[in-house]
Design a protein around this nucleic acid. Structure first.
Lengths: 209, 209
DNA sequence: GTCTATAAGTTGATAGAC
DNA sequence: GTCTATCAACTTATAGAC
């Protein structure tokens, strides 16, 4: 997926586009691409349906723009992991950043979850190229840590799958978590307990033995 | 959600229903309830569309039957966890059983993932009652283990959220995992590495310190 | 830029022949 | 029980008035 240059757009265009993208995120997050209806997105945005097609030409184009928007936000929010840093501190920061994203913008996580479950027709290229490279590179860092005895001997790629899973579950499966906990709304208290539990399990699970 | 009694059904009815449910599982797993089309399920089953409506009356009823079918299969496959058993062994068995389900019937896991992301309109009752009770009861077992110093001091409920997340990710996000690993099809070798990594991280993450 | 009207196609569901 | 034909409603998208 390419990063588009947003050229020649007036302030009002950008503002309306953002409004529509925001509504689209809520709807696509719940029903996926083919399950979502433009009518519903229009209602959510408080605009007539044709207005949405005026700004985004087609449902698919709106969806692609949303995926791009989410991706850019994620890439800017997630810091890197460097070999020179201490594994425990680097991983803690990475996990906390991922948890923050899940909690602050859960619908974005859900849009991606739906997209991947549907076979990643739009973000597949990004996963196979940029994300794969990122993980491959960080796997080398993990191996360096492991050689120095600073990290448990676990397959590095699967470490990332585990971290993504436990952090994103608080966004994607929020409904289930709320129902099982019996809470109507996960308060900040429960969220900090979640962050604590996740970092505790993963960091201790990865510490050398 | 109630468990239905399947009474008064001929062998051929049961067989055809199973055929349709099988096709429905593949389609609903990919597109969720509102994103799936009866036409596609019919094609997948190799039957005319009206045949599906003859056996299941409506799209929603077919979906509810599928959810029930999956739930019964899961409940029968997952063994219980007893306080008297050793935590490490009990958790290992539970994790391995969950991984086995993710690997053997990934579409079932995806149907549930989509359902929960969509706000669990059908299985919400089950989550709030049966599943909540199950987790609450097992949280007591965890607390007993923790008092005996056999388990790390982690919030029991969140332990289950973590285990569900890391095991189900191999079904729900299989597309992403394949693309990041660069494998077209996850061989049994990669799967055993996945099982090993998951049990290693979780079990060590939960061992007392 | 915005909105109404409507085209062109697809959807879930039903009626009725066999 | 099975299948074809078809309906009414709904879908995305466009045309054109303002």
């Amino acid at each position: 997926m390419q990063v588009s240059k947003k050229i020649n757009q007036s302030r009002i265009q950008i503002k309306k586009k953002a409004l529509i993208l925001n509504a689209a995120e809520r709807v696509f997050a719940r029903y996926g691409f083919s399950g979502s209806r433009l009518t519903q997105i229009a209602q959510e945005a408080g605009l007539p349906k044709s207005n949405i097609l005026y700004y985004f030409n087609s449902k698919e184009n709106l969806y692609r723009n949303l995926c791009q928007d989410i991706l850019e936000n994620w890439l800017s929010a997630i810091g890197d992991i460097s070999e020179s840093s201490e594994p425990n501190e680097a991983l803690r920061k990475y996990i906390e950043a991922k948890m923050e994203l899940s909690i602050q913008r859960p619908d974005a996580s859900r849009v991606f979850a739906m997209e991947i479950i549907s076979g990643a027709p739009v973000i597949g290229d990004y996963l196979a190229n940029e994300l794969k490279s990122w993980v491959d590179n960080h796997a080398l860092i993990f191996q360096a840590w492991q050689k120095r005895g600073e990290l448990a001997e676990v397959s590095p790629h699967h470490v990332f799958f585990a971290i993504w899973a436990v952090t994103q579950t608080y966004a994607d499966f929020e409904t289930q978590i709320k129902l099982v906990l019996g809470d109507q709304h996960l308060g900040s208290c429960e969220y900090s307990r979640a962050v604590k539990s996740v970092t505790q399990i993963i960091l201790y699970g990865l510490s050398p033995r």
